[in-house]
Design a protein around this nucleic acid. Structure first.
Length: 443
RNA sequence: GUGAGUGUAGCUCAGCUGGUAGAGCACCGGACUGUGGAUCCGGUCGUCGAGGGUUCGAACCCCUUCACUCACCCCA
């Protein structure tokens, strides 16, 4: 006896059955539209990259423990992409000199990380990446938040449903040096402790900082201040603050932001750290405001040195990723996930075998008019056929029977509103289109 | 990789101190040969996650293993 093959996908991966796929497609098509409305161009890259691409500047933990690694037949060590930023930096570097800047690019890759599955985390996820290259201006930061805000609004989120936390690694590095005598090369270690601060008891954080050789009180005086907007000007110089793009965007952007975006909740939060070592200054996260789903939905930052690693002129970059898992969790938490759309618009039913040619002809007319139309593969009793169509959620049943056909007409039955009338075949498609459009407007 | 919890029909679950597997929903058919949703009647469906052990006998007890869920790590 051979073992039957398992039907479930490998751990941490998902099958997208039509219902789920429909939700995913509806969500991301809205996002594509917003991103493209800002003039961003879609690109894609290979799913496999040499491991060296990540070894340099990614996250130690991700490269060492959370990648799918393989050797190809040419003995190259390849990695299934765990993130998109190194790939896009490589592509920008490859075209260095011929691209007009700023370059606005986006993509929607599937990314793989070998980690244990948990809420909001799978091994494969689909992440929209939005990146902007070639400018040092803090308006680039502003544009990221504007796009993020419009993406969330396009999905039906309200300004209170989410918030954006921003920090600046360069600023915090300088602050640590000035206030707590932390040398720059130790700043990442301190950030690591700060990153965990919210999840561990306070004594644990103080102990860890002490072990690194720093005065916990001094370090925490930088991170645990009440409102940074009030406290930072007291402990940091005006020059330092003015040099921070993150600081400027939080303090100045709203003055000239589009009216619809002024309600966005954007706060400066020095405890935002983020794991990728390539971030040079600005780092930010978009969080779900609901306590039920306390996850970051999108995250990103500024990586001004990444393109330069490819031996090309330094090209500043900033961007973010937004993953399908946390995003769709967010939509469900707030009750704004789109309903799956898996039903055809119409089905054309024959009463007898003799009408099958007419059925095919009518179905072709409807398809030409853009209506998703099925025809039964076998002739069943009308009651059965209607029951089946109705169960599938089909809106219209077109009944092709000899009596009506002889007048050049069919019965058009609206399965949702449960009414029925005779319609000439010539007017059939237009009549159905009108009814469907009415439904779209007033669901 | 670490820790905890859970695995019984397609789904949700019941199954007594161990006695040989059930309900509801779903699905299929009929009541109804040109009209769906309701109702009624009937039917299909299980290696009780897998392997081993204890026992006269295991869905139940023990061991191992796999999968799933949640958390840690990391991050979307």
């Amino acid at each position: 006896m051979t073992q039957p093959l398992p039907t479930n996908p490998i751990p941490g991966t998902r099958d997208f059955f039509p219902e789920e796929m429909s939700v995913r497609m509806q969500v991301f098509e809205k996002l594509y539209r917003v991103i493209e409305s800002y003039g961003y161009l879609r690109y894609d890259g290979p799913m496999l990259e040499p491991i060296d691409l990540y070894a340099a500047k990614s996250s130690e933990e991700i490269v060492a423990h959370q990648t799918y690694v393989m050797k190809d037949r040419g003995d190259r060590t390849l990695v299934v992409r765990p993130e998109m930023t190194p790939t896009v930096a490589r592509m920008i570097a490859a075209k260095s000199g011929s691209l007009s800047m700023p370059a606005r690019w986006y993509s929607h890759p599937n990314l793989w990380r070998y980690e244990r599955k948990q809420r909001g985390r799978y091994r494969e996820h689909w992440q929209v990446n939005v990146d902007l290259f070639g400018t040092e201006s803090w308006e680039a930061e502003a544009e990221m938040f504007e796009i993020l805000g419009d993406m969330m609004f396009a999905l039906g989120a309200k300004a209170d449903d989410f918030f954006i936390r921003v920090s600046d690694r360069a600023l915090m590095k300088a602050a640590l040096r000035a206030v707590a005598d932390v040398p720059d090369d130790k700043a990442l270690d301190v950030f690591g402790v700060i990153d965990r601060m919210a999840k561990v008891p306070p004594e644990e954080t103080r102990r860890a900082l002490g072990e690194l050789g720093f005065d916990p009180d001094k370090v925490l005086s930088v991170f645990s201040v009440g409102d940074p907007l009030v406290e930072f000007p007291k402990i940091l110089t005006a020059e330092l603050l003015a040099s921070s793009k993150a600081w400027r965007v939080v303090t100045q952007w709203k003055e000239h932001a589009a009216p619809s975006l002024r309600e966005l909740r954007v706060t400066f939060d020095p405890t935002v750290v983020r794991g990728f070592t390539y971030y040079t200054s600005t780092v930010f996260e978009l969080y779900d405001a609901s306590p039920e789903n306390p996850r970051s939905i999108a995250g990103g930052g500024r990586y001004d040195d990444l393109v330069g690693l490819f031996g090309k002129p330094r090209t500043p970059g900033i961007g973010f990723g937004m993953g399908d898992v946390t995003l769709i969790d967010f939509l469900h938490t707030h009750g704004i996930a789109p309903a799956p759309r898996v039903a055809p618009d119409a089905t054309v039913l024959a009463l007898d075998e003799g009408s099958r040619a007419e059925v095919k002809r009518i179905a072709a007319l409807l398809r030409e008019a853009g209506l998703r139309t099925t025809t039964p593969l076998e002739t069943k009793k009308l009651g059965k056929a209607l029951e089946r169509a109705s169960k599938e959620g089909v809106r219209f049943a077109v009944i092709a029977a000899p009596a009506e056909l002889s007048r050049g007409a069919v019965k058009l039955k609206d399965l949702v509103r449960s009414d029925e009338r005779e319609v000439s075949i010539a007017e059939l498609a237009a009549s159905m289109r009108r009814a469907l459009d009415a439904l779209e407007v007033a669901p």
